[in-house]
């Protein structure tokens, strides 16, 4: 179902693009003043740049040099790998272990890790399991943030506008809910979270399916939220830039609007990464401490 979801939405954006381009070509032929070839060449150029907001092609490659070995990676897989490498490179460049009171960017990194440990993991998951999961949550936030921000850089695209990527992240949260429950409450922990002890058995007939569906639904909502937020922002920017192809110079206000939306997208990138991390912590905490 996940794969179908992804394919349909891509088919949709592709249809949108082809509709835009065909509209434009017919109007250019009707005008018949400028040569069709130059106009379509210019429009291809614009469309190609607008397309960086929507990962449409199957594989990613460098702009003018075609590297054959890159063809084995799908577009979004390349984006995931690129953002992971960027993240590791940035953190290892920033990190200076030697100085005892950390200075500069290292101090910022320490502040960030302490924030995740105390305000997110410690507050919502609990001390024991929260400390164990702190590295995961630090990585999760920065990884989602890098993937989101990569969508705003020319030549790249956000890997999180593919539902399979966000689905994998949500599956990790779902798995950590179960593993954390086993870690904290023993092997029967997940069972107790689904069917709390002390509840009369006729109630369990209703309670267990409801708990089961709500647990799956939490992960599903995490997946859809990140995916749809990033995709919707990029579709809006793409449509505004696509107006250039239809309207020409009359689309200048749309470009200004696209620039404003770009900065709004910058905010959304941070906010969605934070929300995903926060909600993951809250869901894991709820499942692990089901007695509350």
């Amino acid at each position: 179902m996940t794969a179908q979801f992804g394919r349909f939405s891509w088919g949709g954006t592709g249809g949108l693009l082809s509709c835009t381009v065909s509209l434009d070509v017919t109007s250019a032929v009707a005008a018949a003043e400028t040569s069709v070839e130059t106009r379509t060449a210019v429009h291809d150029y614009i469309v190609r740049h607008a397309m960086y907001h929507m990962a449409e092609s199957d594989s990613w490659n460098l702009p003018y040099v075609h590297l054959r070995f890159l063809d084995i990676f799908r577009y979004d897989a390349t984006m995931v790998i690129v953002s992971a490498l960027l993240l590791v490179a940035a953190v290892s460049l920033i990190w200076r272990r030697r100085r005892d009171p950390p200075r500069g960017m290292t101090a910022l990194l320490e502040f960030y890790v302490l924030f995740i440990r105390d305000k997110i993991c410690g507050a919502f998951i609990g001390d024991r399991l929260g400390r164990r999961l702190t590295p995961y949550f630090c990585t999760l936030f920065l990884f989602i943030l890098t993937m989101n921000l990569l969508g705003l850089v020319p030549l790249f695209s956000a890997a999180t506008n593919n539902i399979n990527v966000t689905g994998a992240l949500a599956l990790l949260t779902l798995g950590l809910m179960l593993v954390g429950s086993v870690f904290e409450n023993g092997l029967r922990g997940p069972l107790k979270a689904m069917a709390p002890p002390g509840v009369p058995w006729p109630l369990l007939i209703i309670l267990v399916p409801v708990e089961f569906i709500s647990t799956l639904g939490k992960a599903f909502a995490l997946m859809i939220r990140l995916f749809a937020n990033i995709l919707a922002g990029h579709v809006i920017i793409f449509c505004l830039l696509g107006l250039v192809v239809i309207l020409g110079y009359a689309a200048l206000p749309a470009i200004l609007l696209a620039i404003v939306l770009f900065f709004f997208e910058l905010f959304v990138c941070f906010f969605q990464a934070y929300i995903f991390t926060l909600l993951s912590a809250i869901f894991i905490g709820q499942f692990v401490h089901a007695e509350h």
Partner: peptide, 16 residues
């Protein structure tokens, strides 16, 4: 709440 709105938005995307 926003998540539910986005469910609707995704369903609308599928219709395009």
């Amino acid at each position: 709440i926003e998540g539910f709105g986005l469910f609707a938005a995704v369903i609308c995307f599928l219709q395009i």
